[in-house]
Each structure stands twice: as C-alpha cells, then as structure tokens.
Amino acid sequence: MQKIGDITTTADPQGEFTDGNVAQGVSPTILPAAWFNTMQRELVNTVKGAGLLIDPKNDGQILSAIEALIASKSYLSIYPIGIVIWFAQNKDPNKLFPGTTWEYIGEDKTIRLAAASGSDVMSTGGSDSVTLTVGNLPAHDHTFSANTSSFDYGTKTTSTFDHGTKGTTAAGAHYHSIAFSTDDRGGAGFGGGPPNGAYGRTGDVGDHIHQIAIGAHSHTVGIGAHSHSVSGTTATTGSGTAFTVANSFIKLMGWYRSE
C-alpha cells in the first residue's frame, strides 16, 4: 500500500496529508490520481479476495468482504485438510466455506475406524447382507431312528388250489427187496418159502413211471407279533436366502476436506 507521501512531495515529513499554510509558504498536499488509484485497488482486492464480485450498486461490500475473510480465516483453522464434518441437512461445504474443497463421503455407508498409521484410510468394504454357505455352519449331523408299532397279524391261510395228478419221471428198470419172516401161525413163509430172516427181491419190471395225486389243499402260515426298525436321513431344507446384517441407523450427510 502506498502513502500519499510516496506519491507527492507536498505531504508532511511523516508522509501524511497537510492543509498547508499559505502565509508561511507551506503548500497543501496535492491529491494526484495515482494515490486514489492505489486506494481503489486496495479496496477492490479486498472484495475480490473474499470471493465476492464487484457490485457498483452495493456500498457494503467492504464490510461483507471483511466478515467473509475473518470467517474464512476462522474455518481454515477449525477445518484443516482431511477433517470430516456431518450435516443433518442438505448442505454443501464447498459453498459454505469459499476457498476450500470438500468431497462427499458417499451414500449408504457406515464408518469403521482406520489403522492408527492411516494406511487404510478411505478404503471400503463390507455389505448390508450376507448369504451363509456350508462352510459357515459348524460341523454337525442329524440322527434319525424309529420303530414301527407291534402288531399281531395272526395265522393266515393260502388260497385252495387243486394241482391235479402228476407223473414222476421214468425211473428205469429196477426191483424191490423183500424180507421174509414166519407168519402168525408159527410156520415158515407161505408155500414153504425161505426161512425166517431170509431176503428176496421182486422181478425187474423195466422202465416205468408212477402217478401221484396232489389234491386240492391249502397251507397255513403263522405271522406273529413283530416290529421293524427304521433309519435314514431327513429331507433337505432351506433356500439360501441372504439376510440383512445392518444395525439400526440414522442417516447423515458426510463431507471431508480434500484441499
């Protein structure tokens, strides 16, 4: 900033204005355009430095600029780069704090504290819901066993069926042995035959078959009281639907200062 004494020699020794004294030969301070331009530049730079646009119809801009600059210096110290602020309304700190740059944290996120070294700051992860897999379940099994009720089915009879007369296969030539003994009259066998205890045989009758009659008959089967043991596995259940793990929450708008 320039003083009037930097522009003209008509200023006093301190470089300030003087009314002069004609009687004593002291000239009043001349007001050149250079000084007024200096003052104007100072005032314009103050307004612009506060982030305001020059408005020729607004005579209060210097005051607004000073207030804005004071506020800016205040929030610059309160909100250093990297700080996070929260709003319960839709506010944009880029507009609230001119000269600073803020980034929105993001939507539908929760906060997890980073490492003390700051190595993982701003990293993301996690999910609001999960789906369990077999690997998430503890080792276990399902045991199932049962017994049927005891019931006496009594005695059952098969149906009657006549199998008719069946013939044996041809047995071929053969004979039958006969043992002799005395009859009940105390004599030898009839006709004076062999003595008691002797053996004889029938003649050879050649190939022949025998007929056997199998008449209609049935069989009875006893089914006593008894039970059966049953074992197995249960049926598969479940659908693998994902479930939420989100805690009860309240939503706020979060910003962090990047510059």
Rank of each mutant, 00 (worst) to 15 (best):
F144R: 05
A216P: 11
L63A: 12
K166D: 07
T234K: 08
D19W: 12
I70W: 01
K251Y: 03
G232C: 06
A33V: 10
F190C: 01
L76H: 12
T18W: 07
H176E: 05
K156P: 02
S150R: 14
M1H: 14
T110Y: 04
W102S: 01
V245M: 03
G203L: 04
I66W: 02
W102R: 01
T8G: 04
A225Y: 02
G191M: 08
E67N: 11
D59S: 12
D184Y: 04
G135P: 05
D19H: 09
E16Q: 14
S145V: 06
T233N: 13
G193R: 03
T182W: 09
T18D: 07
D120R: 06
P32V: 04
T155Q: 11
P28Y: 02
K91I: 15
G200V: 04
D59T: 13
K95P: 00
T9Q: 09
T220C: 01
N147M: 11
A11F: 12
T38E: 04
H174A: 09
S74T: 10
Q89Y: 14
G187P: 08
T158Y: 05
H226K: 05
A188R: 13
G254C: 05
P93T: 11
Y79D: 10
G222W: 02
P194S: 07
V84D: 02
S127K: 15
G135I: 13
V44E: 04
S218D: 12
S27C: 05
T233G: 03
V205E: 00
G186L: 07
G206A: 11
G154I: 08
A11V: 13
A114Y: 05
S149D: 13
F161I: 15
A65L: 09
K91S: 12
D108L: 07
T8C: 03
H142P: 01
F249H: 13
H208I: 04
D183Q: 13
Q61S: 01
I70R: 12
I178T: 07
A198P: 01
A23D: 15
K57S: 00
N58D: 15
N90M: 07
G82L: 09
G238Q: 14
E107S: 04
Q211H: 07
A179C: 00
